[in-house]
């Protein structure tokens, strides 16, 4: 029995490894094919730099969402939170003159507060997390508008534009930060007690609680860690673009659309890659796809979104192929 068990286990690992290699090889192959389709522009050094830069924001926000969503909390107010927190960071730099410390601390603290508020609405009041998320999104969007309107006036502009503290958004710094965030997230998620606890809460809350895991504490901690990761993504994005434009009427959702796609792709590949690696693979797929579509002239917002939707579904189909289900 023990021999059979280790063989079964080893076979499963081999199959998983084979699938991983296959998926990565397929992505590389698609990139090479697309290189020729785009007339040799895709894999040019400058374009590779652009892709590596474009990977960073969906990846970091996706990783942050992974922490939050893994506990079963579907928080769709993340986009509104980043806009609000980012603008607080930008105001700290441009109006208060607090430089990098102001940018980093302001953005992270506001992001943590917003995420904890939203999570608490669901956790302590009992509102379904997606309802709490949508409600909070409207509130955070409105707060972002009010804040920016009041502060931009002082700058004489329509929005708060961050002209200083742009080093964090430059290549390769932005990419190095994303790599560090990915490695840290990967280890927290897969090799720490907290990581296992939060996955246990998401996978079977009653079992986890019965095993002595403090559900509320774990979910709140996941919210904090997720918020920090998303905030780092927000800071680098703000340094890169110089602004977060406030929106209303759930417009903030479009700002995290690519990150949501990354999380969806990661979920599709959950039998092949663990969630963190799935986010990495997903962010390369998303960034690569948008880059290629832009290079071949597919209109953004419509054609590009259709392609992204199809790719997300295709990933799900490919990952489910030949799934055997229960192991004997």
């Amino acid at each position: 029995m023990a021999g059979q068990t280790s063989t079964a286990s080893a076979n499963l690992k081999k199959k998983r490894l084979r699938s991983q290699i296959l998926v990565i090889a397929a992505i590389v192959l698609v990139f090479i094919v697309c290189h020729f389709i785009t007339g040799g522009r895709l894999l040019r050094t400058n374009n590779i730099k652009a892709i590596l830069t474009q990977v960073t924001y969906p990846l970091m926000v996706g990783l942050g969402m992974m922490f939050i969503f893994s506990t079963g909390m579907i928080d769709l107010s993340v986009g509104a939170q980043v806009i609000l927190a980012g603008n607080v960071g930008a105001i700290a730099v441009e109006i208060l003159g607090l430089g990098y410390p102001g940018l980093i601390i302001g953005t992270i603290v506001v992001m943590i507060i917003c995420e904890l508020l939203c999570t608490s609405c669901s956790l302590f009041i009992g509102i379904p997390s997606w309802v709490a998320g949508l409600g909070c999104a409207l509130v955070f969007e409105a707060l972002g508008m009010i804040l920016v309107d009041s502060q931009a006036e002082a700058l004489g502009t329509a929005i708060v534009y961050m002209k200083k503290c742009n080093a964090l958004g430059q290549f390769p710094v932005i990419f190095i930060i994303a790599v560090i965030v990915f490695i840290a997230s990967y280890f927290i998620f897969n090799y720490t007690k907290f990581g296992f606890n939060l996955r246990a809460i998401g996978g079977g809350g009653e079992v986890a609680e019965a095993m002595g895991i403090n559900r509320k504490k774990t979910i709140l901690l996941a919210a904090v860690i997720g918020a920090v990761v998303i905030a780092i993504g927000g800071i680098t994005q703000l340094s890169y673009t110089g602004r977060f434009t406030p929106t209303s009427g759930m417009g903030s959702l479009s700002g995290i659309f690519k990150s949501l796609a990354v999380v969806l792709i990661s979920g599709s590949f959950s039998r092949i890659f663990n969630d963190a690696v799935g986010c990495l693979v997903g962010s390369f797929i998303v960034a690569g796809l948008f880059n290629v579509l832009t290079l071949v002239g597919v209109p953004s917002g419509t054609g590009q979104d259709i392609c992204l939707g199809l790719v997300v579904m295709l990933c799900g189909i490919l990952a489910s192929l030949r799934y055997k289900g229960v192991m004997k």
Binding site: Y191, G203, G204, V207, M211
Partner: peptide, 29 residues
């Protein structure tokens, strides 16, 4: 009857859920 396993976690992690403290080295398990 009511209690089962957490399906998305490996068996070894399931066995030590809530009892990982002795296996924690710094932040790692």
């Amino acid at each position: 009857q009511e209690l089962g396993v957490v399906g998305n976690l490996p068996g070894v992690v399931n066995m030590f859920l809530g009892k990982m403290d002795p296996y924690t080295k710094g932040p790692m398990v």
